[in-house]
């Protein structure tokens, strides 16, 4: 198979590292070669963060470039728009509808674009936009929003459902396992 490229984008502190570890584990357990690239340090402090997950028979580069992502998992709307050029033509964006204002917007030096999801749709891009926080809250904890997002994308990530679910189970902290699995299941049901 060709290398599958998944990007996880969001705001530092939203839990994208855990999401990337879940996808990395799923890829390895499904028998693929995999590379995951993360961002640490200063950019994590509330900045725009991006994580790359690439899997396939043999993966060389650990990064994903413009026009290469099969799937973009976005924890925040503006980040979905920021990283849109990285989506492959025909790829899918799964985004949380949460809005977190960046500092230039907070201090009035810039404005937060309106109707981001609609504008992306208008470009004929396949986009799924849901309130992952709400789904996670329903499952028992807002902290499981990252896993809910994985559930929402489960049909385009290229993994067998059970492989993905087992990876969630293996990667989340033991005490949060049930909540996360509930969030995953609920999100997956929603997408069908």
């Amino acid at each position: 198979m060709n290398t599958k490229n998944i990007m996880i984008v969001g705001v530092g502190g939203q839990g994208s590292l855990l999401a990337s570890r879940i996808l990395g584990a799923a890829a390895m357990n499904a028998g693929y070669d995999v590379k995951v690239s993360e961002v640490h340090g200063m950019s994590q402090r509330g900045g725009s963060v991006v994580t790359y997950v690439r899997y396939g028979e043999s993966v060389a580069s650990p990064v994903i470039c413009e026009g290469e992502a099969d799937v973009i998992l976005s924890f925040e709307k503006l980040e979905a728009a920021r990283w849109l050029p990285y989506l492959k033509i025909g790829g899918t964006i799964v985004t949380n509808v949460q809005q977190i204002n960046p500092m230039p917007v907070i201090i009035g030096a810039a404005s937060y674009p309106d109707e981001i999801v609609e504008k992306i749709k208008a470009l004929c891009v396949d986009i799924i936009a849901e309130d992952a926080q709400a789904m996670a809250k329903e499952a028992g904890s807002e902290k499981a929003a990252n896993v809910a997002l994985i559930g929402l994308a489960s049909h385009v990530l290229g993994f067998d459902r059970n492989v993905l679910r087992a990876a969630v189970e293996a990667c989340v902290p033991a005490k949060a396992k049930e909540v996360n699995l509930r969030a995953f299941d609920k999100a997956q049901e929603k997408i069908g």
């Binding site: 725009s48 503006l78 728009a81 050029p85 937060y112 504008k119 470009l123």
Partner: peptide, 11 residues
């Protein structure tokens, strides 16, 4: 690649 027309504020 494709992009929306709005200016994306930096974060």
């Amino acid at each position: 690649s494709s992009m929306i027309a709005d200016e994306i504020p930096p974060r």
